[in-house]
Structures are given as C-alpha cells and as structure tokens.
Design a binder for these strands. Structure first.
Lengths: 191, 191
DNA sequence: TTACATACGGAGACTGCCTCCGTTTACTCC
DNA sequence: GGAGTAAACGGAGGCAGTCTCCGTATGTAA
C-alpha cells in the first residue's frame, strides 16, 4: 500500500471545474468586480458548495481565471523571440499585452477586488510575466540594443499602470507611446 | 428672503466630519480594503447613520480621504517649479510621489476597492494630478529639454503602475529607475 | 454489483453596506 | 436667557454577498 495514493479526480469534478472556470471568465469580464460568487454558481448550474470546493475563496477563483490568461500571454513571448530581432520582439510583446487589455481579454476590474491588491494577485503570475519579460529584455541587452543595467521589473511596473488606467480617455494611444518611451529610455546611449 | 440660504454647517457636524476623515485615513492605512464602514464608525465613536450622512457611500469616503492626500502632492509641484530647473522639478516631483507611496501616506490597498477600479477613483483627483504633471512637463518642454510631443498622461500611467506594485521586492529602487527611464526616453534626441 | 470515497446542492450562519426614523442638540430669533 | 426649529445624531434592522455544513447522490474500483 503506497504512502500517498493520489487518485485522479472524478470525471464529473474535472468537468465541473473547467465549466465553472469558463463561466467565471465570462461573468467577470462582463460584470467586473461586482460579479457575485452565488451568481456565478447559478449561471454555471452548480450549488455554491460545489463552486467553493473547487475554488475555496473568491480570490482563488479570480486568481485561477487570471492565471489562465496570463499563461497565454507568456507563451507569445517565446514565439516572438524566434520570429524577430530582440528589440522588435520586446516591443511586439508589450503591444500584445496592451491589445489583450484593450480586447477585454483580461478581467481588469475584477482584479481590483483581490485582497492585498494586484500585487498579491500577481504573486502567482509573477514568475510567468517576469519570465516572459526577462527573456525579451535579456536578448535585447545581449544584442547590444539596451543598456546592460536594464531591469525587466521596471517595465512591468509601467505596464501594470496601463492596466489601471483604461478608463482614462485615449489610454490606448498613450499606452503605445509609453512603450516607445520605455524602449528609447533604455537604449544604449540614452541620456 | 434670499433664494438660496446656504446656512453654514453646524459646528458639531463640521467637527465630526473632520474627525471621521482622520480616523478613516488611519484605518484604511492599516487595514486596507478590508476596513469596514461599521468599524470606522465604531472607532470614530459615531453611529453608522452619522458616518453615512457625511459620506453617503464607502467609495465617497475613500475618495475624500484620497483627495485630501492628493491635494498635498499637487501643491508640491508648484513649489518645486519655483525652486529648480524644469527637468529637475519634474524628477523631484515624481520621486516625491514615490516617497508618498513608500511612506504609506496614500491609502494604497483601499483604493482597489473603489467601484470601477482606480480609474473611477482617479476621476475626481485627475484634474489635480494632471495639472501638476502637465505644468511640470510643459515647463520641461518649453525649456527645450523634453521632446515637444511629450504627453504628461504617459507619465501618469507609468506612475500608477508603481502604485500597484509595492508588494514586489525592491519596488522602490525599481520605481526610481523608472523615473530616470521616463525622463531619458522623453528627452530631445532620444531614439 | 456492491461498497465507499468523492462530489454535489442548498439551507443558513455570519458579516458588511446602507436606510429609516425616533431622539437629541446646536443655532436663531425674540 | 428661553423657546422653537432645522440640523444632526445613533442604532436597530433590511438586504445582499461570502462561505460552511451536512445529508444526498454519483462515479469508480474491486
């Protein structure tokens, strides 16, 4: 008899989990942080008990939905690296990030609700985002385009700001300019 | 008999309002978004009814506390303009902004809770922040240090990001580097 | 097919936001 | 100074949202 059995989850549980995740993304995208757990359960046609067994707190659910999206973004960074010169790849990825936000692919408003703010939420996703950024920046440094002290986290901070200012008019154009400023400000030879 | 009498508020009301605001700042600073209205009322030794007469919703209270702080920040921009060269004043103001965040002078986590996210909250404070930024940037453009297409909003976005990443290790140093990147990236002659 | 671990659903405890209204208090006018 | 009144106060409680508990149902392994 093995110490830890680790039976794989029942088929209905697996189905439910994925179904809930899908509904949750929809609801959060539409209703933002106002979305209620009971409502999500109702729409997914499960009891609140079931919802809470899969995602023990509201935060856990938001985090799960969010992580799903971030994983897709991170994958794109790798792809760009193989397709274009380093600085272009970095720029393209930052612009893609903005597009995701623009297309409501990420559940912006709901993220505000997570205890401890975004920072706490990002904790789970940080390695992913950081990895994607670090890779892109590293390559741009290696190619000699960016200064060698360039720190990917600085870019992360700026882009998080974009995240939170989508209600300001003209946010998208401003975000694109910001990308250019960041690149220009980190180039070798910039004052 | 005048059309609008506009009696000035009763002394006890005025006192209570200010007292509540002070307590609220304390509580929000300590407990973040978890702070409850009833708790604030209890600590301020007033009934919930009183609290809600002064600040009709939770958001209104947060906004009032926040605005208080932002007004202080905006005033500093003017002061710096009179004391140092344009680019220095801009840098100094951005660094001051970071210091406020660092010193927990601003009720960071609580801001997340405002309906519609920070964007909505910033709506009230936007003219102030924007004015402070616009003035500083304008002067730096007029002096020929920054490119003439420089847009203050781009800086705002980046700094909002700093706001939300204070849980990441080394955020303060990173924020300061970000300030330098922004200035370098907006200088005349930057790529 | 049986037995049981696993998962399900929903009633309801608990908490937080906010309202309503009877009571109290500061200000005004004589 | 005292009476009258508009303004402000406090707190009981409505309503809604998060999360728990537990009796019931179901998938899975032997």
């Amino acid at each position: 008899m093995p110490a830890t059995v680790e039976r794989r989850p029942r088929a209905d549980a697996q189905r439910n989990r994925e179904h809930i995740l899908g509904i949750a993304k929809e609801v959060f995208t539409r209703d933002g942080e106002a979305a209620s757990m009971d409502d999500i359960a109702r729409r997914a046609r499960v009891g609140p008990g079931t919802l809470y067994r899969h995602f023990p707190t509201r935060d856990a659910l938001i985090e799960a939905v969010y992580r799903n999206e971030v994983e897709k973004l991170a994958a794109a960074a790798e792809r760009f690296a193989g397709e274009m010169p380093p600085v272009e790849a970095l720029r393209a990825w930052m612009l893609l990030f903005i597009d995701h936000v623009a297309g409501k692919m990420l559940i912006l408003p709901a993220m505000n609700a997570v205890a401890g703010g975004t920072a706490r939420l990002m904790e789970g996703a940080r390695p992913l985002i950081h990895g994607a950024f670090a890779g892109s920046v590293q390559r741009a440094m290696a190619s000699g385009d960016l200064r060698s002290e360039t720190n990917p986290d600085d870019f992360v901070r700026a882009l998080v700001g974009v995240f939170y200012t989508t209600a300001m008019p003209g946010w998208e154009a401003s975000a694109r300019r910001l990308v250019e400023i960041l690149i220009a400000g980190s180039r070798k030879g910039a004052a």
